[in-house]
Design a protein around this nucleic acid. Structure first.
Lengths: 200, 200
DNA sequence: CCTTGACTTGACCGACCGGTCTATTATGAT
DNA sequence: ATCATAATAGACCGGTCGGTCAAGTCAAGG
């Protein structure tokens, strides 16, 4: 077998980095192939089109994300409210690491692609929506638990969870525009103050 | 004089529409020229490059925005807290109008460009930052007034204003990904619950 | 040994990219 | 009437875009 990873995996990982750090439209297939040391023909053997590559990148990232620090932030024995703080911290340190490393904040791949592609590709938009739904569900489960335990007063946990996700994406957007991950640290904790009441 | 607007204005308005509805990279100069019924030579007479056009589009939009419904939302005799509601409503109706008209939510031009261009063009990033700063200052002035009048308890108005701006951008991002402006309506009012305390 | 099919190679395609250039026309000041 | 300059027209440039394709390499199965 190969000493280095699968051709397909190499394309996927390279494309993910490049789409995340720049944008879908700004990165060309030729460029991806060069960076991944793969020929055009091999690329099109594994992916029918650039768009399908992007779709695969979203799945790939969503998988890693759900099984990575998101799982850490949400699935542990921490009290529910502290999980929110953990999530913010993780976002900050992750973004900070890429700034230290490449000088630029890349933000959230999903948010980046969502704004770039939502008006142009409904399939991609649907996939991004699914990713956001999953993230919202994590928030919601946390809030449900907090409400059940009496740590938080009753509220519309689903709507509040959406609001928290929106806020997270919003502070990442602002931080990326400033190229200062510290914005996440400064504004992040206020996620706990967001609240939408039950409309009964 | 011309029956129709200035060539330069026509280019600017057309580019603004197209950048807003799609993205910077996805719209070509040739396409802009065709839509604006202008020749390439005329285009480059008025704008040295595509990038400079984008810079001008940002300025143009920021100007219209500040003198348009943002001014309405913030500068009137409304009680401070109601101005926040007005802002959310305005965002909703504006996005709703474009969905009804073209079937797609375009979101916030500044947010869209910020995520697409921040890692690639520091000048554009700086300009977008400036726009966001101005928006934040509007929020901040409103909060300062509310605190001064006793309508709201003391808080870090600058940080809270940033948080509110982030939240606004976040819900627009989520709404665009769902292509449902109603998301703004549903999550928007929670902007009033955001609060960052003074760190004294 | 031969065949099959996954994988790779790299030349090639037409279309389009952002941008340049020369020539021409319209306009306003002198 | 002249002349400078603003504005327009549109052919043209090298380069790159996403994508195709015919020709091969190679390992496993018969």
């Amino acid at each position: 077998m190969n000493a280095e990873p699968d051709t397909r995996s190499r394309i996927l990982a390279t494309a993910r980095e490049m789409f995340h750090g720049r944008s879908y439209a700004d990165v060309g297939i030729q460029e991806i192939c060069e960076a991944a040391r793969v020929q055009k023909g091999s690329f099109y053997h594994f992916f029918p089109s650039k768009r399908d590559l992007a779709l695969a990148v979203i799945d790939d990232m969503a998988h890693d994300w759900a099984h990575g620090f998101v799982a850490e932030a949400f699935d542990q024995a921490l009290p529910p409210v502290e999980r929110l703080e953990y999530m913010i911290d993780a976002a900050y340190y992750w973004q900070k690491a890429t700034v230290d490393h490449e000088g630029r904040m890349r933000g959230c791949l999903f948010g980046n692609l969502a704004l770039e592609m939502s008006t142009r590709d409904d399939v991609m938009r649907a996939k991004l929506n699914y990713v956001f739904d999953k993230a919202r569900d994590r928030f919601r489960a946390t809030l449900d638990e907090a409400v059940a335990s009496g740590a938080l007063a009753a509220m519309d946990t689903e709507a509040t969870a959406s609001a928290m996700l929106a806020y997270l994406e919003g502070i990442i957007l602002l931080a990326k525009t400033r190229n200062e991950p510290e914005v996440i640290q400064r504004l992040g904790p206020a996620i706990k103050t967001l609240r939408i009441e039950l409309s009964h």
